[in-house]
Design a binder for these strands. Structure first.
Length: 565
RNA sequence: UGGGGUGUCGUCAAGUGGUAAGACACGGGCCUUUGGAGCCCGCAUUCGGAGGUUCGAAUCCUCCCACCCCAGCCA
């Protein structure tokens, strides 16, 4: 346990649990749950909660349930249920045989409601939604009691049973808890427990036409499952008195609700409503667009589950509203991929290079290291020949001070190959664009070392033209240009805050031939460029498509940017 | 005086009366066949503010200030 403790940073929830363990509050048990509503896809904010709940269960020898909070058939769908399970599994967590649905408890919940009615603690109200709102009062003024508040137990029982039987129209009646219309906490002003909804539920079909609200469902579901610590986000803090009230008045097992701050990330939005809008308004290709902060989007982008878990572990848990710099998430994938991703050479924006002194038909197989961080990953052979492609960005006709790549008259190293020197620049007659470089290579420098000890300032990646594979590469960047789009996007059009360059598609990229066998989902480092993965959906043999997960740290880009200021 | 929360480095975040961890970001250096990776150094005399208690306070008390959440038959 000590190792695990040092791995998971201390936080106030763990302190509470350790205190509970010390005092024997739950007979030494720790039992959590992850309770998503199946009305959308999981995002990195959910990952924080998943890692918290499953992580705590694992560290304290406890259990964590997966429970769908499916009490609103108007918004919930089976496709979301399926996607959520896939995402939780992909993240690396296992709920064993403890897959539950709040809808499994509908009958029990109904019984609970009956008890409250019998005890005079719940009543059927005929007020309309609009009237209930008016009767609720305001933040500063108390509410008024409904004229139906004092119906007899018998009448309430009869009405509630008939609500279930489908005798009343949608919206015509609700079941309410009889608490206190003058409570300063609005949640206690006779909250609605049941509403009439003639909707088909993804799991219970048309068996029910009354559905319990979140407040009347969540705590009791926790209770039924024997949850010890019910972890949720800050906005439910005001609901805790109600959570406690139902459990106390039902006189059933009473878990402890603890609230923590949800995750916000710079340059992205996290609310399901806004994510849905991005999808519906076509700003992205879907919930799994690689620019989305959804788990399916991050997966398609090439993020590893390990890096996301590590990120969630390291951002910590607190009650403070906070926004984590997305650079930290990116740091976490780089760190992981640096150790695991095989290196490979790919030229994204090809510039033709002809080695004038290299024999026409000669081909050499040069040895390249697969991962300098892991010798066990071995080496491979890369073909080299007279005509090559290098990156357009690696050549400048008039290089500025700190640019030390290729330029006229300059010598650089081609990785794992030879030193080459640029003699001539060939341009398009009409456009003036550089179309080809005429270079010479030094046969003495095979492998990249000069026997005379002569040094070279840059090493470039390259691909042999004759052997090159063509591919499409999608360069992804932050979806939003602003650090805090959540605020900017409120009420306005996304247009003003979206990053117009969040996706750049390159269709004529050149790859070394070893990539022939790349499989969907494979993650690689394109040397000097970044980490890329084979798109799981669009890539096919002979028509490869890669997604850029994240760039490498780019010192040159930083120098360039600083120079422009 | 509606109620409930939160305020420690640019951003996260430890710290629970004994004299401010760590990470990211940023800046500088070393090293380098990825301007990658790695390594080293720097980066809060101060904890929203003001008082007070104490030998000693980010931690306790008082007052103040700022920000977030709540008036769905959403969760």
């Amino acid at each position: 346990m000590n190792e695990k403790e040092s791995k998971s940073p201390s936080n106030f929830i763990r302190s509470i649990i350790e205190e509970d363990l010390r005092t024997g509050r739950w007979e030494g048990r720790v039992h959590t749950r992850f309770p998503p509503e199946p009305n959308g896809f999981l995002h990195i904010g959910h990952a924080k909660s998943i890692c918290l709940n499953f992580g705590i269960a694992a560290d304290y020898n406890g259990l964590c349930n997966l429970r769908f909070d499916d009490t609103n058939p108007l918004k919930e769908e089976q496709t979301y249920i399926d996607a959520i399970m896939e995402d939780v599994r992909w993240l690396g967590f296992d709920w064993g045989d403890r897959l539950y649905y709040a809808s499994d408890y509908f009958e029990q919940l109904y019984e609970y409601a009956l008890k409250l009615i019998r005890d005079g603690k719940a009543y059927v109200d005929d007020l309309s939604a609009e009237q209930i709102r008016q009767y609720r009062g305001t933040l500063k003024e108390p509410g008024r009691e409904s004229p139906y508040r004092n119906r007899s137990v018998e009448e309430n029982l009869d009405l509630f049973e008939r609500m279930r039987a489908g005798e009343f129209e949608e919206g015509s009646k609700v079941l309410r808890a009889r608490i206190d219309m003058a409570a300063p906490n609005l949640n206690l002003r006779d909250p609605v427990m049941y509403r009439v909804l003639y909707a088909t539920h993804p799991r219970t079909g048309d068996r029910w036409c009354i559905y319990p609200t979140y407040d009347f469902t969540h705590g009791q579901s926790d209770s039924i499952e024997g949850i010890t610590h019910s972890l949720c986000t800050l906005e439910f803090e005001d609901h805790r008195p109600l959570y406690d009230w139902f459990l106390d008045n039902l006189e059933i097992y009473h878990p402890r609700q603890i609230e923590f701050a949800r995750l916000n990330l710079t340059r992205t939005v996290m609310s399901k409503r806004k994510l849905l809008r991005l999808v519906e308004e076509g700003h992205v290709s879907g919930w799994d667009d690689p620019r989305m902060p959804t788990l399916s989007g991050l997966r398609r982008r090439g993020y590893t589950p390990e890096s996301i878990r590590n990120f969630c572990e390291r951002i910590g848990i607190s009650k403070k509203d906070s926004t984590v710099d997305i650079a930290f998430l990116e740091h976490c994938v780089r760190e992981d991929l640096n150790r695991r991703a095989p290196r490979v050479m790919a030229v994204l924006r090809p510039l033709r290079v002809v080695l004038e002194n290299y024999p026409e038909d000669r081909v050499e197989e040069l040895e390249a290291v697969n991962n300098p961080e892991d010798e066990a990953m071995g080496t491979r052979k890369v073909p080299f020949s007279k005509v090559l492609y290098i990156e357009r960005d690696d050549f400048m006709e008039e290089p500025p001070k700190k640019f030390y790549r290729l330029a006229p008259g300059r010598e650089v190293r081609l990785r794992y190959a030879y030193y080459v020197k640029c003699n001539d620049v060939i341009k398009d007659e009409n456009t003036g664009q550089v179309v080809e470089l005429r270079c010479t290579y030094d046969p003495e420098t095979r492998g990249g070392w000069a026997p005379d000890g002569r040094k070279v300032k840059a090493t470039l990646h390259w691909v042999s033209a004759r052997h090159a594979l063509s591919a499409e590469v999608r360069l992804y960047d932050h979806l939003f240009a602003s650090d805090h789009p959540e605020e900017a996007a409120d009420g306005t059009d996304f247009g003003s805050v979206l990053n117009p360059d969040s996706l750049e598609t390159l269709t004529d990229c050149k790859l070394e031939p070893s990539l022939e066998s790349a499989k969907p989902g494979d993650r690689l480092q394109f040397e000097r460029l970044g980490y890329f993965c084979v798109d799981p959906l669009d890539s096919r043999p002979g028509r490869l498509v890669f997604n850029r997960t994240v760039t490498l740290r780019d010192t040159w880009a930083k120098i360039r940017k600083a120079g422009k200021k």
